[in-house]
């Protein structure tokens, strides 16, 4: 019951944060000097009627204090405007690429979680060769995901495999590899910390097997691992823009790149709103999970 109240409070708070962020996005988009219509047409002169029509469609024809409440209300009612180039609603475009990104996030997160657990077991229970693991971890986590993508691309061509554009597999492999390094680094630090705890000594003295002790350790180090994974999936949802556009995968990142390159102003703003909401939801989820998993954090 008290947990439910805490959940409701968190949800209300993040809703408030969403409203403020949307407001800020709108003010930002308006306050930056420059004129999207001029950028769109370049050197060509635009006649007054077309310009007025565009300004009205983009919602730029009235002063900011009139437009702002309209904009925020429209976001919540699902009317995110129309793309300049394609005759489609922004919310449909965003929804489609969001689902594509989710297809990328879920397997990648599952893989990274399982692989981190497995490597952790090999690292601490089976092998004594810690130097190898330390080197591998720092190697994997230091190299940015964009370089991983390039390496993977070169590898594909050396192995003479076809580079399929728009397929799920190449970005999935790249993101999982790059994510594994970072997540395992965090997990490993927690494991090292947990193994120092006195209760591990007690379990050893009680004669628990290595696997049972490892399970206890994992349960204890679950909160940081889960929050690292959740944070990372938020990042992927926000568009691993570079990786997705490297392999032409039609997710959020690719959508951002297309919208940016074609100067599609409404889609760009819709993207920003969607990503901001995702981030706020992910942060709230992390907080709630911490409350759920770690009784010490529960301050109702």
């Amino acid at each position: 019951m008290r947990f439910a109240i805490a959940v409701i409070r968190k949800a209300a708070l993040s809703l408030f944060l969403v409203v403020i962020s949307i407001t800020l996005i709108y003010i930002l988009a308006r306050a930056v000097p420059g004129d999207p219509v001029t950028v769109l047409y370049g050197e060509m002169t635009v006649d007054e009627n077309t310009r007025q029509m565009f300004l009205q469609r983009l919602g730029l024809d009235k002063p900011i204090y009139v437009q702002l409440p309209i904009f925020v209300l429209r976001i919540f009612s699902g009317d995110w405007g129309k793309s300049i180039y394609i005759d489609r609603n922004v919310i449909d475009i965003i929804r489609e690429s969001y689902i594509n990104s989710l297809k990328l996030v879920i397997p990648s997160t599952a893989f990274v979680l399982l692989a981190a657990l497995a490597i952790g077991y090999m690292d601490f229970a089976i092998s004594n060769n810690t130097g190898l693991y330390v080197t591998m971890v720092s190697l994997f986590s230091a190299i940015p995901s964009i370089v991983w993508g390039a390496v993977f691309l070169v590898f594909l061509s050396i192995a003479e495999l076809p580079i399929v554009h728009g397929h799920l597999l190449p970005p999935l492999v790249t993101l999982s590899l790059a994510g594994l390094g970072i997540v395992y680094k965090i997990f490993r630090e927690t494991l090292l910390d947990v193994l120092q705890q006195p209760f591990i000594q007690t379990y050893i003295a009680l004669g628990y097997s290595k696997f049972q002790i490892y399970l206890k350790v994992v349960r204890f180090s679950l909160p940081p691992l889960i929050s690292a994974l959740l944070y990372r999936s938020g990042l992927i949802l926000a568009g691993s823009i570079a990786i997705e556009s490297m392999f032409d995968y039609p997710g959020m990142g690719f959508q951002f790149k297309i919208a940016f390159e074609s100067r599609d102003y409404p889609v760009l703003i819709g993207w920003g709103v969607a990503v901001t909401i995702t981030f706020i939801v992910v942060y709230t989820l992390i907080d709630l999970l911490h409350m759920f998993l770690d009784p010490r954090v529960r301050r109702y």
Binding site: L17, S21, L24, I25, L28, A29, V32, P33, G34, D35, P36, V39, A238, G239, I241, F256, F260, R263, Y265, L268, W271, G272, V275, T276, F279, I280, Y283
Partner: peptide, 16 residues
């Protein structure tokens, strides 16, 4: 923290 930085930069790049 919550507003994606790449979005801010993109808006600036589109307009300026």
């Amino acid at each position: 923290n919550t507003i994606p930085i790449i979005f801010i930069i993109a808006i600036i790049a589109v307009k300026i």
